[in-house]
């Protein structure tokens, strides 16, 4: 198992903020919109340096999505910012008609996704957003795993023409990917070369799959691990190449197993190479209040759950 280390734990939303700061300096067409969550989205520096390119919308997410669509007419590249729940479910039809169907170059940037939002509870913990967004024709869906990758993704999506959903989170997590790593939309990152089982993870579960890989190595199991930061378009080639080697898969995500990464992977496998698969994901349930770590433990979204799923899927080979 390849060794991964990190010097600090930092939230992915700060990676978004850092990416926005850089975009503010390098791309004059980038504008930011926020629905009363500037502090949470970490975009204070962008606003300070580019006050004329920031739009404080207030608590009115539907209006924000429409304004973002309108700003693209005339060449602006709007980045909207609010929590994942309010970025998707609350405004689905606005995104569907005014952004996706209208093919507007809007970047929907969503913080506090999933259970790791923590104590605020299930009203704010969306576990359905990947599904909602990936079903929209033309929508790119990205869920990076750490600070560096989120920053790189933020910068990369400004260059992509078309609507994008960028999902990140609240808690401090290990920052282990290289700061200079090139972010390629739709291209999986190989975390480890292995032969016995494929682990495909996205977002916060990528670090957990590294921990799982280390544990599995101790048991003599060699895991091929993929960081799938782009859920749509999905890197089919990387998935099929890995599965051809290992013959079984575990997918891991901070999302409902219905509609998430796991189902996208299952579709690719069903069409090309039917393969035993286990899903580390929430099991069609809402979340609840608790610390991020407590919730990830309770709902089985951690390295132990991944190891358990690997043990199970290996028996199905």
């Amino acid at each position: 198992m390849k060794k991964y280390t990190y010097t600090e734990k930092i939230d992915t939303r700060s990676g978004f903020g850092a990416g926005m700061t850089e975009l503010g300096r390098t791309n004059p067409n980038v504008v930011a919109l926020c629905a009363d969550l500037v502090g949470s989205l970490k975009i204070a520096d962008f606003i300070k340096e580019n006050p004329e390119r920031f739009f404080q919308i207030g608590i009115a997410e539907a209006n924000m999505m429409g304004i973002a669509a309108g700003l693209t007419i005339g060449g602006k590249i709007p980045f909207t910012g609010t929590f994942a729940n309010f970025s998707t479910g609350r405004v689905y039809d606005q995104i569907r008609q005014s952004i996706a169907y209208s093919n507007k170059n809007v970047k929907i940037c969503a913080s506090h996704a999933g259970l790791t939002l923590g104590e605020d509870g299930a009203t704010h913990q969306i576990l359905e957003d990947i599904g909602l967004m990936k079903m929209l024709p033309g929508m790119t869906v990205i869920n990076p795993c750490d600070f560096n990758q989120t920053k790189a993704a933020t910068i990369a999506i400004a260059e992509h023409q078309g609507p994008v959903y960028l999902r990140f989170g609240r808690p401090a997590v290990p920052n282990f990917t290289p700061a200079d790593q090139k972010f390629e939309i739709g291209k999986a990152v190989k975390i480890n070369d292995g032969t016995d089982v494929t682990i495909i993870a996205t977002g916060h579960l990528v670090w957990e799959s590294i921990l799982a890989g280390e544990e599995l190595a101790k048991q003599g199991i060699s895991a091929d691990i993929l960081d799938i930061h782009t859920i749509k378009p999905l890197d089919q080639e990387a998935i099929l190449e890995s599965v051809a080697k290992t013959g079984c898969v575990v997918t891991a995500e901070e999302h409902n197993y219905l509609g998430g990464l796991g189902e996208s992977v299952a579709r690719v496998l069903a069409e090309n190479n039917p393969t035993p698969q286990e899903f580390v994901a929430t099991q069609d349930t809402f979340g609840e209040s608790g610390t991020p770590a407590q919730l990830m433990d309770k709902y089985g979204l951690n390295s132990e759950a991944i190891v358990k799923a690997v043990t199970k899927v290996l028996k199905r080979k």
Binding site: I67, G70, P78, Q97, Y101
Partner: peptide, 21 residues
């Protein structure tokens, strides 16, 4: 310049276009 039909969305889009101007 934008799809419409699902009602209530056009003014927001128009405002965005006005601010882009």
């Amino acid at each position: 310049r934008v799809a419409s039909g699902s009602l209530g969305q056009g003014m927001s889009v128009a405002i965005g276009a006005a601010q882009a101007k």
